[in-house]
């Protein structure tokens, strides 16, 4: 039982990170129906930028917000420069362009920072040692990750549901043509969506870097888990992405321990199984809206 709880705690912490990146995927998919295959690599590159800041002597609490702002701006730039020209192009074109983003950021990171793993610090003020409650060890950093996720969700909820900008963002995503007619600058709303997504992804990268080592491919596996999370939660539901993320985190942690065959090597197969199973059984995911396709 103790081990089970321990696994759930660790799985939830990892799941929060998957959920964050899934959130980024969902924010973009919801507004533009693009699955951004480059999302993980953009996050990875942002994490390297943050590492550079830290390496230059900047404090954690300065470097991280600064990186988030840069990631936000970069997300907007990517949408304006690269995605907008192909926005209405056939879906193969868009998939290819986002794969181009994947290749580009991956190779750029390898080029600039080399493949040698870099240590990434815990946030200043978060202690390394764990607390013991009964038989269970609680790692402070896991709680921190959870708190960050909850805070971000709250901020996004207020932004989307309680502000005029949020209303515009939602409207532009749901019905771009009508939005234009009420005077919403739809193109900017889509770009802002990419910016928010890039920042959320960067956050996922910077939160996971202390746990796994920072190297150019460290987000690739996380991206697959995030795909599974977003598929499970529903590609058009931001809360679904987070719930899906936590679910996947636990499925992977528990499956790896209790299913003999999976072990630690095949955890990615679990993600594949989830993706295919969800797409077959309930393509809209747990929280997504079933869309009736009109002919």
């Amino acid at each position: 039982m103790t081990e089970f709880i321990q696994l759930v705690l660790a799985g939830t912490a990892n799941g929060c990170i998957y959920g964050l990146l899934a959130l980024a995927l969902v924010l973009i998919y919801r507004s533009t129906h693009i699955i951004n295959f480059g999302q993980g690599e953009m996050a990875m590159f942002s994490t390297y930028i943050c590492w550079s800041f830290l390496n230059a002597g900047m404090g954690y609490w300065v470097a991280v917000p600064l990186t988030l702002i840069l990631a936000f701006a970069a997300g907007i730039a990517v949408q304006r420069v690269l995605i907008r020209p192909v926005q209405n192009a056939p879906e193969l074109t868009i998939v290819i362009v986002t794969l181009g983003l994947y290749l580009f950021f991956n190779s750029l990171a390898l080029w600039i920072y080399s493949g040698v793993p870099k240590p990434f610090p815990l946030p200043t003020g978060i202690r390394q040692a764990s607390w013991q409650v009964g038989d269970i060890f609680i790692i402070p950093y896991h709680l921190f990750i959870f708190a960050v996720l909850i805070t971000l969700m709250a901020v996004l909820y207020v932004l989307f549901q309680r502000t005029k900008l949020g209303l515009g963002l939602r409207a532009a995503a749901a019905q771009p043509a009508s939005s234009r007619l009420v005077g919403i600058n739809v193109n900017w709303m889509l770009a802002l969506g990419w910016g928010i997504a890039a920042a959320a992804g960067a956050l996922a990268g910077m939160l996971s870097a202390p746990v796994v080592q920072l190297e150019p491919n460290f987000m690739a596996t996380i991206l697959i888990f995030s795909f599974a999370s977003a598929t499970l939660g529903g590609f058009d539901s931001p809360p679904g992405a987070v719930v899906g993320g936590i679910a996947i985190g636990n499925i992977v942690a528990l499956g790896g321990r209790y299913i003999e065959f999976i072990g630690t090597q095949l955890d990615i197969v679990l993600a594949l199984v989830v993706i295919v199973a969800v797409l077959l059984i309930r393509p809209a995911g747990l929280f997504g809206r079933q869309v009736v396709q009109r002919v």
């Binding site: 515009g168 749901a174 019905q175 009508s178």
Partner: peptide, 22 residues
């Protein structure tokens, strides 16, 4: 617009607020 351009997933009130977006 033709076909009314309703923001279908939004409430009536939100539709009116969107109308006043500018």
């Amino acid at each position: 617009p033709e076909g009314r351009g309703t923001f279908t997933d939004f409430t009536v009130e939100e539709n009116l607020l969107l109308g006043a977006y500018s």
